[in-house]
């Protein structure tokens, strides 16, 4: 079987894959990074969202073999260096933006991508951006609130840094 090498959460990794092996399978089965979830088989639910070279990608929709040399970031790479919750993760906990936790990794990764593109999104912009992520528990109310809170927190951090 062919081999693929990439960087995942800052760590160089490689493994044997079939041509049909999806990135999410490589992450979950080969690397045993089970924080990235599979909620559907049609690219709809967004539970598998990760970042590939900084862009948010549904990892059930790309082949691992096509990703030689890329940098992947998953939910396991979102905490602060000291292991505490990163600002988006902390905002989800503070605002009860998760219940069963299954869609949560994808939601956090999508939220991070949104806030990188648009640091202070409106509620409508947040809701539109979440179109590709389904949550069955929260009714999205507290996910939206969490992302608004994370945006404010990140903005405050930028002001403090300046």
């Amino acid at each position: 079987m062919p081999r693929v090498s990439m960087t995942v959460n800052g760590r160089p990794v490689s493994g044997e894959v079939e041509g049909r092996t999806l990135l999410v399978e490589f992450l979950r089965e080969t690397l045993r990074l089970t924080g990235t979830h599979v909620g559907c088989d049609t690219g709809q639910c967004g539970a598998c969202v990760v970042h590939v070279d900084g862009a948010s990608v549904k990892s059930c929709n790309v082949f691992a073999l096509d990703l030689e040399g890329v940098e992947v970031r998953t939910i396991e790479g979102m905490a602060n260096p000291d292991g505490s919750l990163g600002p988006i993760q902390a905002a989800f906990q503070q605002n009860h933006g998760l219940q069963c936790g299954f869609c949560t990794p994808g939601m956090v990764m999508t939220a991070a991508a949104l806030l990188a593109e648009n640091p202070s999104p409106s509620e409508a912009e947040i809701r539109a951006y979440l179109e590709g992520n389904i949550c069955r528990c929260t009714g999205y109310h507290n996910i939206v609130k969490s992302i608004q809170a994370a945006a404010a927190e990140l903005a405050a951090g930028r002001v403090a840094a300046e």
């Binding site: 990074l33 089970t34 924080g35 939910i75 396991e76 979102m78 905490a79 906990q93 936790g101």
Partner: peptide, 17 residues
Amino acid sequence: KRREDVRFLTGKGRYTD
């Protein structure tokens, strides 16, 4: 605030799969 959130938010949840 929920204590279980920490494992869910860091990818450390333990679902059957």
